[in-house]
Design a protein around this nucleic acid. Structure first.
Length: 202
DNA sequence: TGTAAGATCCTA
DNA sequence: AGGATCTTACAT
């Protein structure tokens, strides 16, 4: 089976609310310097738009958020609550701050070195933005990483079979409001794969 | 230089 | 419902 190419940077050059649902079903790949890989299917995303009060760049450019003003197809990684990291894909044209938060992954296999206790299901290991960054060892050093084959992180398109299931309605996406915010709470910018066990919250 | 809030997660 | 834990942004 040939290797799937990573998603090209031009693909991300649209608004976050267009990209967020399109990323559901795509595969996130984390590759380490020794060649080890962890792969998981994206099952939950949230969009953050320039005119969105919940967006980190709502009040302009700062050192933390400047990656979001750059070209699409890079990683925006920040630390939250002093304990966790969150991974975003930068979207839209250069100069427009816009990003998609990756909220949950369905891992393909248990990551090496992580023992699954009897009570810990694989589906819940990356069910949340902080949890998936912990499992994939994504931290602020990866902020600004180009999402491209051979880098530390990249994305691959939906497998044809999944695309067909979406086209025929066998599988559907749910669109709803975002989680954990105090601003922009009414905006319906969260999407998840209906019924997926790895979704953070239903 | 101080401080309040935060795109989370786990336990009780 | 509360706590862990610390960076960031903005006010003073």
């Amino acid at each position: 089976m040939p290797l799937a190419p990573s998603i090209a940077h031009q693909w991300y050059d649209r608004s976050a609310k267009d990209i967020a649902p399109a990323l559901i079903g795509c595969t996130l790949v984390r590759q380490f310097s020794d060649g080890m890989m962890i792969r998981g299917m994206i099952v939950e995303t949230e969009a953050y738009e320039p005119d969105d009060p919940a967006m980190h760049a709502y009040r302009g450019k700062t050192p933390r958020n400047e990656v979001m003003f750059g070209p699409a197809g890079r990683a925006y990684v920040y630390q939250i609550y002093g304990l966790y990291h969150c991974l975003n894909v930068v979207t839209d044209r250069e100069g427009i701050a816009s990003a998609v938060l990756i909220r949950a992954l369905q891992l393909e296999t248990a990551p090496p070195g992580i023992e699954l206790a009897a009570t810990t299901k694989l589906e819940r290991l990356a069910a949340g933005p902080g949890k998936l960054c912990r499992v994939l060892r994504i931290e602020r050093s990866l902020n600004g990483t180009l999402l491209s084959s051979g880098q530390a992180l990249w994305l691959e398109h939906r497998p044809p079979q999944l695309q067909q299931q979406l086209d025929t309605g066998q599988i559907t996406l749910t669109q709803t409001t975002r989680i954990g915010l105090t601003k922009g709470v009414e905006l319906p910018y969260r999407w998840y794969l209906s019924g997926a066990a790895a979704v953070s919250k239903r």
